[in-house]
Nucleic acid binder design. Structure first.
Lengths: 126, 126
DNA sequence: TCAATCTATATGACGCGTCATTCAATGACA
DNA sequence: TGTCATTGAATGACGCGTCATATAGATTGA
């Protein structure tokens, strides 16, 4: 019943879990310590930073991340409270919101991104 | 500042995240629906099932999973409440506990494992 | 053998993500 | 234009994982 293939699958899965958790934890701690934001906050910040257009984006964000819509909403709450991002209402669809980095947000993002990339390289690349 | 290598790293990381989350969510939902246990509960059950010796294992479990010691403790709480596992005190070190599957635990595990492996195959291997 | 230290596990407060629901705005269609 | 369904986002209850701590048992060394 426990075939060799099963064992391989389980091994593969555990190794994915481990590398995912170790990397995520390392980044999360570092960002928390140095910039006082968590990994998910950074990921959203990063997505906002890389989208140049001013399209309505709360929705789009949800499609680029495994986070739930409500998770995104709450992450944005925190980012907004921290003064890193602001929600702008959207003229063409008043249900929608788009996000903009504040100056503080842009500054923090560019510093944090360096750290983020470095930790990715350390944990993913050899 | 945003080098090509950086972009590649970020891409790689997002793809890991996505495959991790999608797989974990799929397994979690399926196990929840069919067996009323979550993914972490199953993982612990799986670890207990595959350790043949009767060594004191709460500790050992913590080393084979990215979960925290307290997370393991709480997962075991739930498994015990569900009657799938029992905590046995350890003669040679009375601080330690080892775990044993109950009959119900063994039965559920062997059914759930089939589902688990199938979903791994579906999500990891093509 | 007694104190100091260490180790295995449990526990409570807390933060975050999820689900279900809600609300407002939009669209579709008669 | 009025109704009904749909969509973008926010919210509250809830479950789970984490951190810091607590507790009981083990170990070391004078």
């Amino acid at each position: 019943m426990a075939t060799t293939q099963d064992r391989q699958l389980v091994e593969q899965w555990r190794s994915i879990q481990n590398s995912y958790f170790r990397t995520a934890a390392a980044i999360d701690r570092a960002l928390e310590a140095k910039f006082d934001i968590g990994l998910n906050e950074f990921e959203i910040l990063d997505l906002v930073a890389e989208s140049v257009d001013s399209a309505c984006r709360m929705k789009a964000l949800g499609e680029r991340t495994p986070m739930t819509q409500s998770a995104v909403s709450k992450v944005v709450d925190r980012l907004e409270k921290a003064g890193l991002v602001s929600r702008m209402t959207c003229a063409d669809d008043r249900r929608s919101l788009y996000l903009e980095l504040t100056d503080a947000g842009r500054a923090l993002h560019s510093d944090a991104a360096v750290e983020h990339r470095a930790l990715l390289k350390e944990n993913l690349g050899e």
